[in-house]
Nucleic acid binder design. Structure first.
Lengths: 134, 134
DNA sequence: TGTTTATGATACTAAATTTGTATCATTTGT
DNA sequence: ACAAATGATACAAATTTAGTATCATAAACA
């Protein structure tokens, strides 16, 4: 079971590269070249990041993308939420006949607890964290 | 992002029902009727549980399935592992060009930590836990 | 011993999600 | 006006998840 999917992965990598770059703006083309991510797919991802205000985009010549936030404000968990949606159960695991007999909410609460645990771990994973040497 | 998929869900519900049942053996047919799970799909799931030694199956007339373990030994995490595979990253999130600059292993270790946290939470979710009233 | 009633094995199909492609529109600098 | 960038959007392929269908096998029992 994959905790992180490819589009999240790509987003992280692109953001890392942009963060590290000396240039003020980075073009898709450069990202594609360096990161070896399929172009149109990456563009779609960057457009989403732009809409979600994690990147600012500049059109036209000398255009490209730049970060809108400090590196330590860009959290892996945010990216996961954007590209993979919030963590949740399948739905309600117990329905109808079975439900009344079984304390459904137990499991739900458990999952909530797990989600909190995962999120809190992931919250410490920021771009800054990933880029810090040593 | 779904933490638990439908086959895990179905497995839990089937096991719960079998655990609660007064009968020594429960047939697929009864499970299908009560739990409203598509028959052939549930059969496949039960066959897997049988292979994985969580259920014992009896063929022929008066056949059916029964638990092989105590309820507190059947853990949600085991079912998730069976039906969804182990928790993992997409793969290595950073490759080639980017990798040397970034401490890949950081993230990996983080995920390992997260996995441990999730597993340890889930380890306390057993059939017994789910079935306990109040 | 043969029929009924259950599971075992397995191959196939459908649906949903994830990943990737293609195309045209829009904006901006020169 | 043109070139170089992103924006929007519709489509397609691949993968994973969910569900179906069919025949084989084993056990109980008349």
């Amino acid at each position: 079971m994959k905790l992180i999917t490819r589009n999240t992965d790509y987003a992280v990598r692109a953001l890392c590269f942009i963060a590290q770059s000396k240039k003020k703006k980075v073009t898709v083309e450069e990202l594609v070249r360096v990161l070896e991510i399929p172009g149109p797919f990456l563009r779609k991802i960057l457009q989403i990041l732009n809409k979600k205000k994690l990147l600012k985009s500049y059109k036209g010549q000398n255009g490209g993308f730049s970060l809108t936030k400090l590196q330590d404000k860009i959290l892996l968990t945010d990216l996961m939420k954007i590209f993979q949606g919030p963590l949740k159960l399948n739905e309600c695991i117990f329905k109808k006949q079975v439900c009344p007999n079984i304390k459904t909410c137990k499991l739900k609460k458990k999952i909530d607890k797990i989600e909190k645990c995962v999120i809190s771990e992931l919250k410490s994973v920021s771009l800054a964290y990933l880029l810090k040497k040593n």
